[in-house]
């Protein structure tokens, strides 16, 4: 494919046409913060953290989706961009428990976000779902980046065990008819746990350790579980 030359933060850069602004900026060593974006997932541009200013465009554009084009002039950290990222971070912090999302915490700090700016929001308080021996789902920590649903589907596993439930503010990742995972198509491949950015999905062992159990206690449980199954 033909190359195009564009300007990012005043620096010219030449990339193959179709390269996203995110990757073009990376080529210059400019890091654009992302949340929902993952190297191996289809980009959806839904967290809006990576928005940048593209000259001539009324709205801010998601860098993870917008392809580089000849002559494009992009600003990755204008005043408008910085303010938007800060507010998006603040809104996320107001609605979700980000305590175990270090990357996100760093972004919030970088943009001077005040996590308490939107005190009116009610946090999504959901009980932890512990319905299988492999991993737990703590959707109070879920920022709805969609990665788990995507790797469960066409981005990796083609299992389609995970899906969406509800809409708007009440959207949640779930299984069909809220069935426990062992009753779904889930094969416990662990792809979803691997891509989760906030520890909403967590290996069961890690979770049990956090609950104060010792490795021996955990092993004892699995041993008795296996014995029950054999007997």
């Amino acid at each position: 494919m033909a190359d195009v030359t564009l300007t990012i933060d005043g620096q010219p850069v030449t990339v193959p046409a179709g390269t996203t602004l995110l990757k073009a900026a990376a080529q210059l060593g400019t890091a654009i913060p992302t949340i929902c974006y993952h190297e191996h997932c289809t980009a959806n541009g839904l967290c809006r953290m990576c928005v940048v200013e593209v000259e001539g465009q009324r709205l801010l554009q998601p860098a993870c989706l917008v392809p580089a084009a000849e002559g494009l002039r992009v600003q990755t950290r204008s005043e408008r961009v910085a303010r938007s990222r800060r507010t998006i971070g603040e809104m996320l912090a107001a609605s979700v428990d980000l305590s175990q999302a270090p990357e996100l915490q760093a972004q919030l700090a970088d943009y001077g976000a005040d996590p308490e700016r939107f005190p009116e929001a009610e946090r999504r308080a959901r009980p932890v779902i512990d319905d299988n021996p492999m991993y737990v789902r703590d959707y109070a920590k879920c920022i709805l980046c969609w990665r788990c649903v995507q790797v469960c589907a066409e981005d990796a596993q083609y299992t389609f065990a995970l899906s969406f439930d509800g809409r708007g503010y009440n959207t949640q990742i779930g299984t069909f008819f809220e069935k426990p995972l062992p009753e779904t198509a889930c094969v416990f491949c662990g792809q979803c746990v691997g891509v989760c950015p906030t520890n909403a999905l967590k290996p069961k062992r890690e979770w049990l350790l956090e609950q104060g159990q010792t490795p021996d206690e955990i092993m004892a449980q699995t041993r008795s579980g296996r014995r029950r199954k054999r007997g």
């Binding site: 809104m91 939107f118 708007g168």
Partner: peptide
Amino acid sequence: SCGKCVPCRVGTVQ
């Protein structure tokens, strides 16, 4: 709101 992007999902509520 469909709940896909953060500004609309959380912003409308705020």
